[in-house]
Design a protein around this nucleic acid. Structure first.
Length: 219
DNA sequence: ATCCCGAGGG
DNA sequence: CCCTCTGGAT
């Protein structure tokens, strides 16, 4: 008999019903005070923990919470605040140049459309999706390492690239869950369906999940 | 495919 | 020691 490789429609709806019940109003764990600081925080979060990003941005945003103030800080100034974050040289350069471009091309505001966001240095598809979702309330699906892993383990997608997984999720997730699905999957991946040692025994959607761990889940 | 690149956890 | 963390540019 063929091994199941995809989830049924009712199973998918039930997954998000449970994730919603566990966390009715999920929000980003990145700290920000406006669209600009959200954009910067997301750029800084690449390959880094948001706890580490928040520690740096609490001090940084106190000094620079607008593109104009960020430009005044300059690259060396920015670097001092984010030195504890991985990839900090590229990120400091990107944050400065991105701030300059916001002033030059967008009146100092964060643009809403994907093309304009992705034209900014350090901003790719995933970052653009997060900003569009969190700052502007659009039902985008940002596929990061967590979402990619959770989607493939559970059977929500079998995509081999982030874009394939994004397209699968947009097609498969019921409309009423679309806006928050990204955060539910992230939080589930961060605290339960962890990369190294998934906590299947305490997982709320274990009975619906298609993941068959080669190594035992927790015990 | 490779580089960037520090902190935290196991 | 090792792996992982809301990736992007070349």
């Amino acid at each position: 008999m063929p091994r199941r490789t995809r989830l049924s429609k009712p199973a998918i709806a039930e997954i998000f019903r449970r994730l919603e019940a566990a966390d009715p109003h999920p929000k980003s764990e990145l700290e920000y005070v406006n669209p600009f600081t959200l954009l910067v925080a997301v750029v800084l979060s690449a390959q880094s923990t948001d706890a580490g990003v928040n520690k740096a941005t609490r001090a940084l945003f106190k000094i620079a919470d607008t593109p104009e103030k960020m430009v005044r800080l300059d690259e060396a100034g920015i670097r001092e605040f984010i030195k504890t974050i991985g990839l900090y040289r590229n990120k400091a350069r990107n944050v400065l140049e991105l701030s300059r471009q916001l002033i030059a091309n967008h009146g100092g505001n964060v643009p809403r459309d994907r093309a304009a966001l992705e034209a900014l240095p350090g901003v790719g598809r995933k970052t653009a999706n997060v900003v569009m979702n969190v700052a502007f309330g659009e039902p985008t699906m940002a596929v990061d390492t967590h979402v990619f892993r959770v989607a493939n383990r559970t059977g929500l997608s079998r995509g081999r690239t982030p874009l394939e997984v994004e397209e699968d999720l947009l097609r498969v997730i019921p409309a009423e869950y679309a806006l928050h699905a990204h955060h539910w999957l992230i939080l589930h991946g961060r605290y339960v369906c962890k990369a190294r040692r998934p906590e299947c025994p305490s997982c709320s959607i274990r009975d619906l999940c298609l993941f068959e761990a080669k190594t035992p889940c927790s015990n």
